[in-house]
């Protein structure tokens, strides 16, 4: 199936406080397109968590949002250190974030679980030393 719309973002890995700009921008675009509020909330929160992860762990990356008739696909790709143990990383409360990140309110080990919670499908492809690609799908109710 071909996509209707694509939004592409470069996620800046150097400025932690500006993280979230892509997600807020996506939220605005989806609202403009008239998608249901709960779908917008799911997509933008899942994307924000992914964006924060890329900034904390991977010096940034790229984000693509593909909008189809019946679903929204979020693809996040970075060239960071990769995830050693994905099952462990998926556990609520597990985090490798440093203290400076925790003091900002992140690094609680809820990022990946939230991404799973707010999406209908989530796939993580990660190679240590090479990078991580996360693909998430949120279905649009018909």
């Amino acid at each position: 199936m071909s996509e209707i719309l694509n939004f592409h973002y470069e996620v800046d890995g150097t400025d932690f406080t500006s993280a979230g700009q892509s997600s807020v921008s996506v939220k605005k675009e989806l609202r403009r397109l008239g998608l249901p509020a709960e779908i917008i909330r799911q997509v933008s929160i899942a994307m924000y968590e992914g964006e924060i992860n890329m900034v904390i762990h991977a010096h940034g990356g790229v984000a693509d949002i593909n909008l189809y008739e019946d679903k929204i696909e979020i693809i996040l790709e970075d060239h960071g250190p990769g995830i050693k143990d994905i099952d462990l990383a998926m556990q609520e409360g597990y985090s490798t974030a440093k203290e400076n990140i925790r003091s900002l309110g992140f690094g609680a080990g809820m990022g990946l679980p939230n991404m799973k919670k707010y999406t209908d499908e989530m796939y993580i492809d990660s190679v240590v030393g090479v990078g991580t690609k996360v693909r998430m799908i949120v279905n649009i109710p018909g």
């Binding site: 406080t17 807020v24 939220k27 992140f106």
Partner: peptide
């Protein structure tokens, strides 16, 4: 009691 810039994004995204 959190006051850094990220609270604005979180408030926006969670609506």
């Amino acid at each position: 009691i959190m006051s850094n810039m990220n609270i604005i994004a979180v408030a926006s995204l969670t609506d």
